[in-house]
Every structure is written in C-alpha cells, then in structure tokens.
C-alpha cells in the first residue's frame, strides 16, 4: 500500500487551463459562423491555417526551449491565440499574411518572452499590429456586405492563395467609411454600408455573435464581468457625449459598440488574463481606459479601428495599474500601494 504524500489542499477544483481555453474557442464559434456567412469562407480558411501554424511554431519553440511539448500544447493557449488573430484579419487575407502574423505572435510575442503566462503583451494583438503596420493595404481590404455580394467559395480560396483582392468584391468597412466621410451629411447618407438595422451593415451581426459568445464565457465564469463591461462603457460614454454634441461628425454609441472589433475585443482580447490587470478594481480601470482609447483613435487617429493598439497600450500599463489597485489585506488598516512598498 503506497500512500500518496501530497500537500494540502487534497481536493482540487474542476477548472483547468485547457478547459478554460477550450471554452474560449467554443465561444468564438457564433462569430466565426456569422463572419463566414456574410464575408465568405476566407475567415474560416484563415482560422484553420492559423491553428496549424500556431501549433507548429509552439511545438518547435517548446522543443527549442526544452519544455515538455505535449503538456504545454494541451493547454490550448496557442490555438486561442491563432483563432483570435485569424478572426481579426480580413477575410481576404492571403495565407502568407496569416502565417507571418501567427508565427510572430507565437514565436516572438509569446515564447521568446517565456511562454504562457510570461508575455507582457497579448500575442494575437502583437501579431495583428505587426501586420497592420507592415501590410496596411492587405489589412484594410474587406469583402462582402452591401453593396457587394458575398464571395463564392472559389473566390475565397483564390484570395487565400494570394490571388486577390478580386475586383468588385472589396470595399471599406463601416468604421473606415464613417471616418472618411465624417461631417459630410450627404455622403454619410449615401453610404449603404453605414445603414444596417442599428449599426454598420453586416458588422452588427458579427458583433452580436461575439457578444453572444462573450455572454457565454461570463456565464461559464471563464471571464469576469469587470473588463468587458468597463471596456464597453469606456467606449460608449465618450461616443454618446460626442454624438450628442455633433451627430454628423461623431458616430453614435451603438455604431461604435457594434462595429469593427468591439465585441471581439471586449470579451476575447482584452480579457486575456496574462496581459491584463489582475485585481477587480484594476480590471475596471484597465477596461475603461481601453474603451476610451478606442474611441479616441477611431475618432481622431489614422487607423480605422483601434482595438489592437488600445489593448497593447494598456498591456503596458497593466503592471502599474496593479501596483496601485492592490486590495486591502484582512487585518490591515489600508492597502499597500505603489511599486516600492
């Protein structure tokens, strides 16, 4: 009879990292479905391709770093990074674009920093920003949605293989369009893409699907409510104020909430625990600041969307936020704050 010798606690909770990651992947499925339905199978192709690249890069890096490959691959974090990055890419993205982004995310932004748990920046967003800066044209092309039709499967495959963008299929996103014509009432009126049921055409459904997935994650307690809620509030409140002042120059809050990467960012990107703030109050501050930054960059910045930049900037600030939002320990008069003490 060999009795196990172990340290307390002897009971363990049911949650494990692999499970958490799987839940995140499941929660992206509605969004992926809507993206595929509206903009063709380009996104789906990219997601599958990205997962393959990510697993390969992760395995190679783990091997190079002398870590147990199977154990770490099973945690699913590489797959999550790949899926989130691929979902953020345009459906027209050719295979090499995805490859560069994912490989950079996994090799540099994650493994070179020490692997899961050690990366100061969200790897998917690092990969995304690298692509956005290096290949701005490829990254801002979009397809489908009125006035364009959804590409056929073959067209999507051709685009994925690098034969694109195809004429008559691509155009600007609602966010990009609004930015271009802000202040011009006639133009704004003419732009069909801006006039969905309650936000940008097509995008409203994409964001609704990601919101659905996000609510699922909240419900399963995979993520906390602090970051997403603060994120959305931080975006909606300035948008509301500005829109009240001048609706022609500033988009309405619903448009902001249901356009671009808002919901994906709020529930899937900003909630990445590794690179976010840790305490509850810290997460509120972190989320609000991301939201505000997104609105600022969308409104005044040079890029149509801003989730990636805002998240990365706040990743930088997360340790600082943590220093100043430590909870008060039981039995202590006040919390210890600041880096030193």
């Amino acid at each position: 009879m060999a009795l196990i010798n172990a340290s307390s606690p002897h009971a363990r909770g049911p949650v494990d990292t692999g499970m958490v990651m799987r839940q995140v992947i499941y929660a992206t499925l509605p969004g992926l479905a809507i993206l595929t339905l509206l903009f063709g199978i380009g996104t789906l192709l990219n997601v599958i391709w990205a997962i393959l690249v990510a697993l390969l890069c992760e395995a190679a890096m783990l091997r190079a770093r002398g870590r147990p490959v199977a154990l770490y691959l099973r945690d699913g974090s590489a797959v999550v990074t790949a899926v989130l990055l691929a979902l953020a890419l345009p459906p027209t993205a050719p295979w090499w674009l995805t490859f560069i982004g994912v490989a950079f995310a996994i090799i540099v932004a994650k493994q070179l920093y020490g692997g899961l748990g050690m990366n100061p920046f969200n790897p998917a967003m690092v990969g995304y920003v690298l692509l956005l800066i290096s290949f701005p044209v490829a990254m801002t092309n979009w397809v489908g949605g009125a006035p364009y039709r959804t590409p056929y499967v073959l067209e999507s495959v051709l685009q994925f293989l690098g034969h694109g963008p195809l004429d008559g299929l691509s155009g600007a996103t609602p966010l990009d369009t609004f930015r271009t014509f802000a202040g011009n009432a006639d133009a704004l009126d003419r732009m069909i893409v801006l006039h969905g049921r309650w936000a940008g055409l097509g995008w409203e459904w994409v964001n609704l699907a990601f919101l659905l997935g996000g609510v699922y994650l909240l419900f399963r307690r995979v993520i906390g409510w602090h970051i997403p809620l603060a994120f959305l509030a931080g975006l909606a409140v300035p948008a509301l104020i500005a829109w009240q002042i001048d609706p022609l120059r500033y988009a309405d809050p619903l448009f902001h909430l249901f356009s671009g990467g808002t919901m994906l960012g709020a529930f899937f990107i900003a909630t990445d625990p590794v690179s976010a703030a840790t305490s509850s109050r810290g997460r509120l501050i972190y989320g609000v600041l991301i939201g505000i930054l997104i609105w600022v960059i969308r409104t005044y910045g040079g890029y149509p969307d801003a989730v990636a930049f805002s998240v990365l900037l706040l990743n930088l600030a997360a340790p600082f936020i943590d220093y100043y939002t430590r909870p008060r320990t039981y039995g202590h008069e006040r919390a210890k704050r600041g880096a030193g003490s």
Partner: peptide, 27 residues
C-alpha cells in the same frame, strides 16, 4: 482524491485572488 496533476504555467487569471478570504494576491 486524484493524484496531483502536473503544475502548469500561471496564466494570471486571478481566480485565486477572487477566492482568497484574506484579500491577498496569491498569483
């Protein structure tokens, strides 16, 4: 009471901080 599973990397999820009755930051 299963055997302890291999220790994996901390993902700073903060579940420990939410569970701590002394309001410490276990991570």
């Amino acid at each position: 009471l299963p055997e302890p599973e291999p220790e994996q990397a901390c993902i700073r999820c903060g579940a420990c901080a939410d569970a701590c009755p002394a309001s410490l930051l276990p991570q």
